[in-house]
Nucleic acid binder design. Structure first.
Lengths: 208, 208
DNA sequence: CTTAGTTTGTGAACTTATTCACAAGCCTTC
DNA sequence: GAAGGCTTGTGAATAAGTTCACAAACTAAG
């Protein structure tokens, strides 16, 4: 399969969320043009994105909503339940552990870890915070697929080394630093400072 | 000034964070090549990004660290303090209100709002949760620059209409939906579901 | 003062991503 | 079952973004 751009994957994810809404409203069919309008893009873009994976539409009619959303779930790998661990039991980690959105979309939070002795052993929802030192051992049993890293910047490189050592191949990083990981580990960054600075830039340069 | 790509702005933001680290370590000069290595890009990319705004380096020598970081702060509009309000006093809103990173980078959280009667009036850090109905009135006095929207998906469109009505021109959106706003309002989205699905896709398609 | 060693700034080349545009296919109606 | 009205799927054209490659400019050393 040819390489798929990250921007394409983001759009697929977006289309899926629209389709789920539309499905709930009982609409059974949708055109690329309607999907494009919802997502702020063009119909050609929608069709091109989908055509990378096959032909799912009917000419003259559009796409069958349940069929297409099933197809997208399959493409995005949402058929299986992914096992997630949260590393870093601070404010962000806490918010994430309680976030309903994970489970809703098939991401099962199966463990929480921290370096801080004071936090280890505390209960969080239905989980107990464990020592990061146990991660590698736990991972061999629990087979985590994804690590959500929400540690202070200074601890993060060491934490990430442990995550990599535990054999986890996907990281969602909330720390405001650039991770360095082997090529077979996929990283996505959520960096609030960067987003805010993007807004700051936009506000400063309006009308240029 | 010519249009600057979002990807460029993200990189500038990244360079700035590296420069701040380097500055603290006392290094006074840095080459585009070093910056590139830190950011996982190429030296040509770094130079091209910077050259969009001027010539800040010295040939044969590189960039003066304090000078360049000052220049980047200026470009990104970080010279002034931006006034931020958080809309949505739920879990994410709470985590954000307590997040130190805002203030550190010149983003002053000056208000928290919610629709929920039960939450209005509660104290959060040094702020009191106010009714979203007050936003427009408050905005005329407080002159919010940025609204951080962290409301449940179903309330978000209405909330965003109020934010727009209050004259706020920049929104950081945490709700998992696509906002529709006038062209002069800049939106950045932070969508965890989308990031997780990106990782899910990557995990499902390794080695293709 | 000249040479050797760096590193920038930037057109040009290349690569990637988006948009255009239209033939092919499907549905409905008569 | 033929005609009209849509909408897909996709090559071709365009636009956007990245990398190449090199002259120009600076430092340090002799």
């Amino acid at each position: 399969m040819k390489r798929i751009a990250e921007s394409t994957v983001r759009r697929l994810s977006l289309y899926l969320s629209f389709l789920e809404g539309i499905e709930r409203q009982g609409q059974t069919t949708i055109s690329s043009d309607d999907l494009a309008r919802l997502g702020g893009t063009t119909s050609a873009q929608v069709r091109k994105d989908l055509s990378l994976f096959g032909s799912f539409g009917k000419r003259g009619l559009g796409y069958a909503v349940p069929e297409l959303s099933e197809k997208l779930r399959e493409i995005l790998g949402l058929g299986k339940e992914w096992k997630v661990c949260i590393v870093g039991a601070g404010k962000i980690g806490a918010a994430l552990a309680r976030y309903r959105g994970f489970a809703e979309r098939g991401f099962h939070v199966a463990g929480v870890y921290d370096v801080d002795e004071a936090k280890i052993g505390k209960r969080w929802e239905n989980l107990t915070v464990r020592s990061i030192a146990d991660l590698e051992k736990d991972a061999s049993k629990l087979e985590y697929d994804i690590a959500v890293v929400a540690t202070p910047a200074e601890n993060t490189p060491a934490v990430v080394r442990q995550v990599v050592r535990a054999g986890i191949k996907a990281i969602l990083n909330f720390a405001p630093i650039q991770l360095s990981v082997p090529a077979d580990v996929t990283v996505r960054n959520v960096n609030m400072a960067m987003e805010l600075e993007g807004l700051s830039f936009a506000l400063s340069n309006r009308g240029d």
